[in-house]
Amino acid sequence: MLEIDDLYASIGDTPILNGLSLSINAGEVHAIMGPNGSGKSTLAQIIAGHEDYVVTSGTVTYKGNDLLGLEPEQRAREGIFLGFQYPVEIPGVNNAYLLKAAVNAGRIHRGQDEVDAFEFLKIAREKMAQLGMDPKFLNRGVNEGFSGGEKKRNEILQMALLEPELAILDETDSGLDIDALKAVAEGINSLRSPERAIVLVTHYQRLLDYVEPDFVHVLSEGKILRSGDKSLAMELEDKGYDWVREAASA
């Protein structure tokens, strides 16, 4: 579904990704771990189409087509969803408006009928109930004044409504209390299907206890140092990243 081949990217004059390759197939759940500043969010933002990052070489293909030439909204409509590490507060833009506009943008792209306000509210309330979110969040500004955990839940709500084919969740588990973590994990698990792929960027084994990954990758200094199965995450928890770095340079 997603093929990243020898990707180099920088911001300004600073290189951040240094020959990163990663292959993700439908039906798989990948976890990406790695030290602070190693480039995990950069990778996620590049896949979503952030214009500040310049790809200097390498390719990214999605469902067989070049991804890097697409506008962010085209990527979204083609089924890519990024759960932001730091969801943006947008005062004055109504959360319900955004959710409905987002759902309909995807539907129009797929040639489906738009959902009307009534139908939309019904679905949104259902999903919110599953996530343990108060419906009043629909009427607030997007992430406006939301607590850290509420923002993360709101990201998952968006994901649940958009039903993406490729979901990249950038530290969606950070800052969540234990109930929220479970709710978020359930949200992720309910999306798991043979047609979809999920990428979890995380620092903690905790989330992986609830959402079992098929693959775990360690990203360091802009490239994948090591890949393995879920046992790699446990090993990391034990031994830290130095162990991977040493093993890689050995």
């Binding site: 189409g49 506008e71 962010p72 979204a76 990024l82 833009v93």
Partner: peptide, 17 residues
């Protein structure tokens, strides 16, 4: 950018803001 990653094109996102 956030709005565009949700599928709103630049015009619609601009209008929302």
């Amino acid at each position: 950018f956030y709005l565009r990653t949700r599928g709103l094109d630049r015009k619609e996102a601009t209008r929302a803001l």
